[in-house]
Amino acid sequence: MDEFYRIPIGTWGRDIFDWFKETFQWLIDIFTVVVKSAVEGLVDLLLVTPTPIVILLLALIGWYLRSWQLAVGTVISLLVVDSMGFWESTMQTLGLVIIATLIAIAIAVPLGILAAKNDTVSAVVKPVLDFMQTMPAFVYLIPAVLLFSIGFVPGIFATVIFSLPPGVRFTELGIRGVDSETVEAGHAFGVTPGKILRGIQLPLATPTIMAGINQVIMLALSMAVLAGFVGADGLGKDVVAAVATQRLELGIEAGLCVVIIAVFLDRLTAALGNRADYPTSIRATLSRRKSNKAIAAARSRIITVPTHQSAPLNILEKVAK
C-alpha cells in the first residue's frame, strides 16, 4: 500500500539531474574553469595587495558612492577584522560574494527586462522564482557538490541560485513601474524600443533595480557563509568549524566579520541607486560642479543672446525660483 502511494518525485529529480549532468558536462566544465579562475584571481589580488591599501581603496569607494562617514567606518571596521586575524577569510568571502553577485546580476537583469516586456515570460518566471526562494538554501548545496565537487565553484553556484530571485523581481517591477506616459513619449517621437529601454526605462528603473541588487548581495552573503559547508574557503568555513567544534569565540569573531562585510556592502549598494540622497559623496560633488559649470555657461550665453520673454513669464520664473 505504502509503495503504491509513493510518488518518486525525488528519484525523478535525480534522474533529470543525472541526464543534465551527462548532457551538459562540457558546459559544467567551462563554468567551473571560468568561475574558479575568476574567484581565485580576485581573492589572490585582494590578498597580494597590502592590507592597508585594500582598506584605503574600499574606504575611498565608500566615500565616492556615499559619504566620508562610510569611509571612516570602513577603515575602522576592516582594521578590526584584520586585528582578529580574519583578513584572509574575509577577503575570500568578499571575492566569492562579488563574483556570485556579478553572475547573478548578469542573469537577473536581462531576465527581469524580458519578464517586464513579455507577460508570458513573466508568468513562467514568477513560479520558478518562488520555487528558488522557498526551497531551503541547504538543498542547493547537494547538486552543487555533485556538479562541481567541492571548493569555491559549488559555493558560487548555490549562491547565484539563491540570490537571483530578488534581482529578477526588482528589475521587472522597476521597468513596469516607469511612468507609462514617459515611455509613450518615446514611442510618440518615433524612438526604437531598444533606445526606449536604454534611454528611458532602464535609467528610470535604476533606483528599483539597485534596490534589487542590494537584496541580491545580502542574500549572496548569507549563502556564502553556507558555502563553507561545501568547502568554499572563507568566513563560512570558519563558522562551520566553530559550529562543529563548539568554539563560541571563533563563532563570534567570524560572525562579526560577516556582519562588517554585510554592512559595508549594504550601505554601498543602497547609495548606488539614490545619488541625490548623498550630497557629500565624491560622485555627487563632481556632478554638481559639472552642472554648475554648464549653468554658468548657459547664463553667459543668455546675456549675449536676447530672449523673447513676456512679462508674466518672468514673474512666474521668479516665483518658481
Binding site: D179, E184, A185, A188, F189
Partner: peptide
Amino acid sequence: RDKMSMVFQHFALL
C-alpha cells in the same frame, strides 16, 4: 518621427 509629435497631459518629460 517625421510627421506627428505629441504633447502629453502629465508632460512626460524625461
